[in-house]
Amino acid sequence: MALIQMENLGKVYQAGTVDVPALEEIDLSIESGEFLAIMGPSGSGKSTLMNILGCLDAPTSGKYFLDGEDVSELGREQRADVRNRKIGFVFQGFNLLPRINAVHNVELPLIYGHVNASQRHEQARDALKLVGLADRADYLPTQLSGGQQQRVAIARALVNSPEIILADEPTGNLDSRTSKEIMMIFRNLNRERKITFVLVTHDHETGDLMDRKILIRDGKVEGDERNCGEEL
């Protein structure tokens, strides 16, 4: 079975008394080690899909198998557990805790994974080294540039060796040169550590760097293309 398998998945939001269908009839299969972009116009349901992929939210209909396990029916607690063990997140707005330094931010998933303090510290430093920020371990987020903050966030996403890293517009707040650096890091992690990447982007240039592009429109999968051309 594929790493990610979605079958006829749907999500309906309740806005007051009105039902807002955000996703409909999603059938999607993602293999381990893929490097994939989700694209589509604003409001098409990309973030909604990412939230469900990341087990931050549950679908209202259909099935979602992650790594062979049906996670569509899990409760909050179990979803938290799945997130902790299998998923790393990179956000557009970095989402680092502002009052603790880089290495402590990176340690965060390990705290909830019950890793002991010394091992936590070691893993966090290793992760920072992977994103080229070993020398910034003691810096607070406010003392780092946007690109550096996003690298800390990437270190946090990969510190507990997840199967998959989900990134919703990870370069949305960064200039093109820094964006390229970030994409480079993703590509290396994908190649060397076999981490699956799913990222949302508006930028076609970025989309063209991916192995596969899924197009979403009005909550439905409209296109699914493999990229054989240019590579990063």
């Binding site: 990341g54 931050l56 909050r76 607690e77 938290a80 557990d81 997130r83 902790n84 063990r85 997140f89 989402n95 680092l96 805790l97 965060l108 998933p109 909830y112 994974g113 946090r156």
Partner: peptide, 16 residues
């Protein structure tokens, strides 16, 4: 609230 969201995203449970 945002901090709580971040902690939850990386795996904090209800009890945490």
């Amino acid at each position: 609230t945002r901090e709580i969201g971040i902690r939850m995203a990386v795996g904090a449970r209800y009890a945490d």
